[in-house]
Design a protein around this nucleic acid. Structure first.
Length: 252
DNA sequence: ATGGCTTCATAGTGAAGA
């Protein structure tokens, strides 16, 4: 199965990009983050006409997640169980025998912000839940915008980012804790070129200068085989792109 | 240099993202 994660930064604005990417690549599963779309305004018809079923959990202005799939989705879970959170950041479903968990992990803003504490608390709740999910689903993929660059090689200029969110030690420790559940970073299962990123700042010609970060990830459980994982930079070159670009993996 | 873009909600700017 070809599974994909893409933070689209407004599904309303990016719908043409999403539809053309689906038509070209025909993924089995596409997880979206930052749809910024209320459920009542979700573009259901357009996505169904493209040949996809879709689950979604959104809100106005911020956050919002969706899972598109060619095959039916069952056992839908919205949000992290037993974790009160008004922000729509989590959606899970079982598709073709694989537990797909789509996450939009909080950004954190800055290390001294309340939002950073929220991020760390959120990551602890995610770990507890995923540990439990793994006991029920041996084949599991945790895909999304993690807002964490796991290592310095995932940052264009590590020195410039010291002391910032996305790279702080507690965040990286939370990422490692997920790996200690047996989850593997699909991208790092393969030899990769240097300076490969999934997000670039809109400002200061970030993309043209490859001033980016690898913060969108696909973690897969031990029972899930993986034959390829890559980042598709093409959508970042389009008119009015998202600041993130798709990350995909072939798993089964 | 704490900005630089982009989005959304809003009707001139402000919040938030990363």
């Amino acid at each position: 199965m070809k599974i994909v994660t893409w933070n689209v930064n407004s599904l309303k604005v990016r719908l043409p990009h999403v539809l053309s990417w689906l038509a070209e690549h025909q993924p089995d599963v596409l997880c979206l983050q930052e749809t910024k779309t209320e459920d009542a305004k979700f573009p259901l018809d357009e996505i169904q006409q493209a040949g996809y079923q879709v689950q979604f959990s959104g809100q106005k202005t911020y956050n919002g997640v969706a899972i598109l799939s060619k095959l039916p989705a069952s056992d839908i879970q919205i949000g992290i169980p037993d974790f009160a959170d008004e922000q729509k950041r989590v959606l899970a479903a079982t598709i073709n025998g694989i537990r797909i968990v789509c996450v939009y992990i909080p950004n954190g803003q800055s290390l001294d912000s309340d939002k950073y504490q929220y991020k760390l608390t959120w990551l602890t709740a995610l770990h507890t839940w995923i540990k439990n999910e793994l006991q029920q689903h041996s084949k599991l993929a945790l895909l999304g915008d993690y807002n964490i660059a796991p290592e310095d090689r995932d940052v264009h200029d590590p020195a410039a980012w010291v002391g910032n969110v996305l790279v702080s030690e507690p965040e990286r420790a939370a990422f490692k804790n997920l790996q200690q559940l047996g989850l593997r970073d699909a991208f790092r299962l393969f030899e990769q070129p240097e300076k490969i990123f999934s997000w670039w700042d809109y400002r200061m010609m970030g993309f043209r200068r490859n001033h980016g970060m690898r913060i969108d990830h696909i973690l897969i459980s031990p029972a899930l085989a993986c034959s390829a994982c890559n980042i598709d930079k093409a959508p970042r070159k389009l008119e009015r792109p998202s600041d993130h670009t798709p990350v995909w993996a072939d798993v089964g």
